[in-house]
């Protein structure tokens, strides 16, 4: 399926957030995920066309 990550189209094989994070090589310890302005948990089912925003946990320096 195709989803948007940080506004960019991306094809993914999996449909559960934790599996997608693993697939795109993003450590959940370093990012929170937002869909429709709400934080979502790792077991969330992601649908074709969903737009995900990755919030970097590390900030500043």
């Amino acid at each position: 399926m195709e989803i948007l990550i940080q506004g960019k189209k991306r094809k993914v094989k999996n449909s559960v957030l934790s599996e997608i994070m693993n697939e795109i090589n993003v450590n959940p310890e370093e990012f929170l995920v937002v869909r429709d302005n709400e934080l979502i948990t790792s077991d969330t089912k992601i649908n074709n066309g969903d737009s995900l925003e990755l919030l970097s946990i590390v900030s500043g320096g």
């Binding site: 310890e29 929170l32 934080l39 919030l55 970097s56 946990i57 900030s59």
Partner: peptide, 11 residues
């Protein structure tokens, strides 16, 4: 954790 502060800040 840093993750929690980030979530608190967002909410």
């Amino acid at each position: 954790t840093e993750k929690e502060t980030r979530a608190y800040f967002f909410i």
